[in-house]
Design a protein around this nucleic acid. Structure first.
Lengths: 152, 152
DNA sequence: CTTGTAGTTGAAGTCAACTTCAAGTCAAGC
DNA sequence: GCTTGACTTGAAGTTGACTTCAACTACAAG
């Protein structure tokens, strides 16, 4: 589309759905990389789109940018990541999603009994204290997965 | 436990699991109410614990404080809320949880096929674009329920 | 009455994940 | 070569839900 096959920031913004400001932010945070023209404008290689797709997907799963960065850092340095590389990164999400679904399901089922009783007891109600645990705010047993958790 | 049956801020903090600072914040925001001693210290009625239980539960379901406030505002002014009042408030969460669970399940199932293909295509992959919709950032079709959504 | 713990306030800080702004520079079509 | 729109930067602002701080006051046990 351009003299070379490099993409401008607005190309990438349009194709990835991320705002240009987000792209710059991600670059500052080390999540994506861009080369520069002689005039200091960003030029992206096409593979950045896959990286951005990964980032969006990871955010949907509930990963923080920090976690995403850590995951991306495990990609091989020298070569272009293969399909298998991406698959490896995605596979761990399955677990995370299972956990999230299980937590919400438990919450919902707790709600069913809660509607029956109308109690909202702090110590007993599955909705406000879903794991049947007396609120112990230690770092240990968090009921909801991080993205859903309200810690205090 | 005290001369009257009124609770101090630390009583409530301990029993509800909310930090005193959160309790003061909730009071400023109009979510809970406290009377004052002659020396201007807060004294809570016991029913505040139920209100706080509701707040915690609502937060777990993914409601914002603003939504919680709106829900609490529908409670009757004059009388102490009945079991039926709380039940009515809780009932609407069932839907919300169902939506959240459905969204996550769809995401997970999308992941299964995604692991198979390793594509992470922006336009096609269920993980980064789970509703099979070209990213249209209008206010309309949001894939995930609000608490899970990453809007851009 | 003294002492120490618990409580009070408004203002400011925190965190994540960006967005917005101002002031200026680059690239491309005519 | 000129104009116009795209791009650059660092700094500051945004949002939600609180937490932290400093400076001060209240309450209850001894």
């Amino acid at each position: 589309m351009r003299p070379t096959d490099l993409l401008t920031v607005s190309d990438v913004a349009e194709r990835s759905g991320f705002a240009p400001s987000a792209l710059r932010f991600y670059e500052r945070e080390g999540l994506v990389h861009a080369t520069r023209t002689s005039g200091n404008q960003r030029r992206y290689e096409r593979n950045v789109l896959r990286r951005l797709a990964f980032i969006r997907a990871a955010r949907n799963v509930g990963l923080s940018l920090e976690e995403v960065a850590a995951a991306l850092a495990t990609l091989p340095e020298g070569r272009t990541p293969t399909r298998a590389d991406w698959t490896r990164l995605s596979r761990s999400w399955r677990h995370r999603l299972d956990d999230q679904i299980a937590a919400l399901t438990k919450l919902r089922d707790g709600l069913d009994s809660c509607i029956g009783c109308g109690c909202l007891s702090l110590k007993k109600c599955a909705m406000s204290n879903p794991a049947d645990v007396v609120a112990d705010r230690g770092p240990g047993a968090a009921f909801l997965p991080a993205p859903l958790r309200r810690s205090s």
